[in-house]
Amino acid sequence: MNRVLIAGATGYLGGYIAKELVKLSYPVRALVRNPEKLKQNKIEVTEIVQSEITRPDSIKDCCKNIDVVISTVGITRQKEGLTYMDVDYQANMNLLQEAKKHGVKKFIYISVLNGENLRDLKICEAKELFVKQLIESGLDYCIIRPNGFFSDMTEFYKMATKGRVYLFGDGELKTNPIHGEDLAAVCIEAIQKPDQEIKVGGPETLSHNEIATVAFDALGIKPKITHIPNWVRVVTLKIVRLFTGSKVYGPIEFFMTVMAMDMVAPEYGRHTLREYFTNLNQVNR
């Protein structure tokens, strides 16, 4: 059985991966900043290494006796003075160097669908720079490219709870986001598969209008959708980039950019958005 190191085990996706690895009886070493979060999330791995992955000395020899590394390390919103380049690129580079040093057989990295075509976005610039280094590293590798998580769709639900969902354009652009549990299964399957890149989405491809309608249905509310002209999005992006730093506009530019394009990947999994929104509604009652 391959010995697996999971970096980012306390995050949304990393938690699902860690739990599934344990369920499948993989020996798992979790690289985390706060071990308490593992306990809170009821994740019982074989070994815990407390570290700051942005500091090379903090993860020294973390890959010793490890066969496979799975990294979900990345930030959505820059915080604590750290940038996308600090985390999405350099932190993963630190881990890659340790993996090479200790002869890790395979390195699995979670990037984003169409990231290679979105390098002008700060978050994708950092991710794709690391992807390039991983490809050139000489290690066996797999780049997982999901098109978005169910958790990203929570914004539709939040707007629906206020009675109206606002969409850019005509709302007919399509996407098929994936649940963390389904994506975790893809990441673990990649341990044995020869694929060097896997593009993946959830089991249902929906338009933005349809996603909004599903959110309203989960709430038992009549759908009210307002379509905002695309030029408003373009102007807003320019203003945000001009008057704020990357800490503010980084996540905004990513969200506004992917909301203006189809983000469809091969369908996979069993969890549906209707199920996800319904669960959100039950939790928030």
Rank of each mutant, 00 (worst) to 15 (best):
N41M: 14
Q50V: 11
D195K: 02
M261Q: 11
N65K: 15
P203N: 08
T205W: 02
Q40Y: 15
N65H: 06
V28R: 04
G148V: 02
S25I: 15
C62M: 11
A265V: 13
N117M: 05
M261P: 02
I198R: 00
N34Q: 15
V73Y: 12
D170C: 11
E189V: 09
Y157W: 02
F156R: 01
E155L: 03
Q97W: 15
K238E: 06
A190K: 15
R29T: 13
N114A: 09
K19M: 13
G103A: 03
H179F: 06
W231E: 12
Q192R: 14
R29D: 10
N41I: 12
K100I: 13
Y141T: 00
D67M: 07
K174N: 02
I17S: 01
E275Y: 02
D86S: 07
E20K: 14
V258Y: 01
C62S: 12
L38P: 04
K222H: 09
F216R: 08
S151R: 03
A265Y: 03
A185I: 12
R55D: 12
I108Y: 01
D182Q: 07
Y16T: 07
D262N: 13
K60D: 02
K79W: 15
V214L: 04
R77H: 01
Y26W: 12
I191V: 06
K37W: 12
A18T: 05
P35N: 09
I239T: 10
K19S: 02
I198Y: 00
N147C: 04
T257I: 04
L21K: 01
N92L: 00
A215K: 15
V4C: 10
K100M: 09
F168L: 03
V248I: 09
M93L: 05
A184M: 07
E253A: 11
K224C: 12
I43N: 02
N176E: 09
V68W: 11
E267V: 04
I188C: 11
A18V: 06
K101W: 14
I110D: 04
S111A: 08
E136N: 06
H271T: 06
I110Q: 13
L95I: 13
Y166K: 03
P27I: 11
L273E: 01
Y157I: 04
F150D: 12
Y12G: 03
M261C: 08
G148S: 10
L206Y: 05
V68G: 03
V232Y: 13
T236K: 15
Y89V: 10
P194C: 01
W231C: 09
F149Q: 06
R33Y: 01
F216K: 11
Q78E: 13
T213A: 08
L206R: 07
A9L: 13
L173H: 08
